[in-house]
Computed example of a mutant assay.
Amino acid sequence: MIDLATWNLSVPVGNPPATITTPQLLNGYKNNYFHSHTGTLFFWAPVTGSKTENAIYPRSELRETRSDGALRNWLYTASDNFLNATLTVNQVPSSGKVVIGQIHAFQSTQPMLKLEYQYKASKGSGSLVAKVRLRPHENSRVVTIAENVPLGKSFTYVINLTPSGTLKIKAANKLWARDISATWRTKPLYFKAGAYVQDNTGNSREGAQVTFSKLDIDHNKL
């Protein structure tokens, strides 16, 4: 079973969308948008779902917390920070795009990193694309990490932000690394993972479905 003791969950229902607390998750919470009783984590985000504040797309997505359910935010200089996942993208919307992992910045609308699966029907496969802001106030740059990642097939990613400020992304056995600006040092960060669909048009059967067979966070102290 995947440990849900350090996550809460946003699901795209209600106005504003519902937040499921850490204790609720540990108590076996499930609905059409999320469940964990099979030993894997199932996420479903229809394009017609409700949206969080300042977002234009729906999400069924976990957000990092402490074990008591309080929001966890961290400074990258304090530890070696990892988000490890093994997952399958089962369905994509007509845009072909779903965000499957993030490093977000606390009280900001702009994350440091979005890791996105982008499916191309013409190729019959997808790419893993990182949208990265190396400085807090710059526009994100787009980096293709891996290509020829099949829809419906399991793959692994590891997002690592080191205490010296090196951002490393290993996805589908490909590695990319770059140093971020020291101007991030004072910005509290947190991990997110799930299905953040990058589309908001279509019917209720269109959306992103993602299944995680492994998901964990490590903050290894220096």
Rank of each mutant, 00 (worst) to 15 (best):
Met1Ile: 10
Ile145Gln: 09
Pro46Gln: 08
Phe191Tyr: 11
Lys170Ala: 13
Ser79Leu: 05
Asp179Met: 09
Leu222Arg: 12
Pro136Tyr: 09
Gln198Asp: 05
Lys97Trp: 09
Pro111Thr: 05
Val197Asp: 09
Asn8Thr: 05
Thr156Pro: 00
Leu167Glu: 06
Arg185Glu: 12
Leu115His: 00
Met112Trp: 01
Val99Thr: 06
Ala208Cys: 03
Asn27Arg: 14
Ala195Arg: 05
Trp74Gln: 05
Thr21Ile: 07
Thr201Cys: 10
Lys120Arg: 03
Gly69Phe: 14
Ala45Ile: 02
Met112Cys: 00
Asp68Phe: 08
Ser50His: 02
Ser140Tyr: 14
Trp176Ser: 02
Ser94Leu: 10
Phe106Asn: 07
Ser140Thr: 04
His219Asp: 04
Tyr57Ala: 04
Gly14Arg: 04
Thr19Ile: 15
Tyr119Gly: 01
Lys221Tyr: 14
Ile103Ala: 02
Thr144Ala: 11
Leu26Met: 10
His219Tyr: 11
Gly152Glu: 13
Thr186Phe: 10
Ile180Lys: 03
Arg205Lys: 11
Phe155Ser: 07
Lys30Asp: 02
Thr211Ala: 07
Glu138Asp: 13
Ala70Asn: 08
Thr40Glu: 14
Leu115Ile: 02
Ser164Thr: 10
Ile180Asp: 03
Pro150Val: 07
Ala146Gly: 07
Asp68His: 03
Val47Gln: 05
Ala55Asp: 13
Tyr157Ile: 06
Ala172Tyr: 15
His219Met: 11
Tyr117Gly: 00
Ala55Lys: 08
Ala177Tyr: 11
Asp179Ala: 13
Leu83Met: 13
Tyr117Gln: 01
Tyr33Lys: 01
Trp7Tyr: 12
Thr109Ala: 12
Thr77Met: 09
Arg133Thr: 02
Lys221Gly: 03
Ser79Met: 07
Asn148Lys: 14
Leu128Pro: 00
Arg135Lys: 15
Gly96Glu: 01
Ser204Val: 14
Leu87Arg: 00
Asn8Trp: 05
Ala177Glu: 15
Leu25Trp: 12
Ala55Tyr: 06
Tyr190Trp: 03
Ser10Glu: 14
Asn173Lys: 14
Ala121Val: 09
Asn81Gly: 07
Lys97Leu: 14
Gly152Ala: 12
Phe212Met: 04
Val132Gly: 00
Lys214Phe: 13
Thr109Lys: 10
Leu113Thr: 03
Val92Lys: 01
His137Cys: 03
Gly101Thr: 03
Val143Trp: 12
Tyr119Leu: 04
Asp80Gly: 02
Trp74Leu: 12
Lys97Met: 14
Val197Lys: 04
Asn54Asp: 09
Gly39Ser: 09
Ser36Trp: 09
Ala195Lys: 06
Leu222Glu: 12
Glu61Ala: 03
Val197Glu: 10
Leu115Asp: 04
Pro23Asn: 09
Ser67Leu: 13
Arg63Thr: 04
Tyr190Arg: 02
Ile169Ala: 03
Leu222Ala: 12
Val13Leu: 13
Asn90Ser: 11
Lys214Trp: 13
Gln209Glu: 13
Thr77Leu: 13
Ile2Gly: 04
Val142Asp: 04
Ala85Ser: 10
Lys174Val: 14
Thr21Asp: 11
Lys51Cys: 01
Ala130Ile: 06
Gly49Asp: 05
Arg59Val: 05
Phe212Arg: 01
Ala45His: 02
Gly194Ile: 08
Ala195Asp: 08
Ile20Val: 15
